[in-house]
Computed example of a mutant assay.
Amino acid sequence: MSPEYAVDGIFSMKSDVFSFGVILLEMLSRKKNRGFSHPDHHLNLLGHAWILWIEDKASELTDKTLHDSCTISEVLRCLHVALLCVQRVPEDRPSMSSVVLMLSSDVTLPPPNQPGFYTERSVSGSPLRTHPCSANNSISIIEAR
């Protein structure tokens, strides 16, 4: 979900671009953004991808099985496009037609800016707080009047 939709309820074509970028990062890493964990930090997948990008270690994000079936330059290009899609500011994100062009040609790609939802998770508790359940095992049947 794009930051502008999650925070302000504003949905646009650029919201779809953000979602596409997240899916592309998940496909490249073979990890989900939700629940992502790394031993060195508590960032989500987008934050982890961004750190690796700015440290010039982007290839570390990609699943190694992709290296057998694709060229590393193609994989890194896909990662670059994904980071362009998840930029925090919607106006900075490319249109989907531009994304298709970027993925299917050798056009020069601009450098990406920091992604939206580049967040650090709290580690003090579980992501979902659990509440004690009732020992009552009955099932209520709801009927219309």
Rank of each mutant, 00 (worst) to 15 (best):
P3T: 04
Y5N: 05
Y5E: 04
D8R: 11
F11G: 03
F11M: 08
S12M: 01
S15G: 04
V17L: 01
S19C: 05
S19A: 08
V22Y: 02
I23F: 08
I23L: 14
I23C: 07
L24W: 04
L25A: 00
M27L: 13
M27Y: 09
L28A: 13
S29K: 02
R30L: 05
N33L: 03
G35R: 06
F36R: 05
F36I: 04
F36L: 05
S37T: 09
H38C: 12
P39C: 04
H42A: 08
H42T: 12
L43A: 04
N44M: 04
L45D: 09
L45T: 07
H48A: 06
W50Q: 01
I51H: 06
L52N: 07
E55C: 07
A58T: 06
A58N: 03
E60H: 05
L61I: 02
D63L: 07
T65D: 15
T65K: 11
T65C: 10
L66C: 06
D68K: 12
D68Y: 11
S69E: 12
E74K: 07
V75Q: 04
L76E: 14
L76M: 11
R77E: 08
C78K: 05
C78N: 08
H80C: 02
H80F: 05
V81H: 01
L83E: 01
L84T: 04
V86S: 02
Q87E: 15
R88C: 08
R88F: 09
P94F: 12
M96C: 11
S97H: 15
S98A: 10
V99M: 09
V100H: 15
V100Q: 13
L101I: 10
M102Y: 15
M102T: 01
L103C: 09
V107T: 14
V107W: 06
P111C: 08
P112I: 03
N113G: 01
N113D: 07
P115K: 00
G125Y: 08
P127Y: 12
P132D: 15
P132E: 15
P132W: 15
C133P: 03
C133T: 15
A135K: 14
A135Q: 15
S138P: 06
I139P: 10
E143N: 14
E143M: 13
A144V: 11
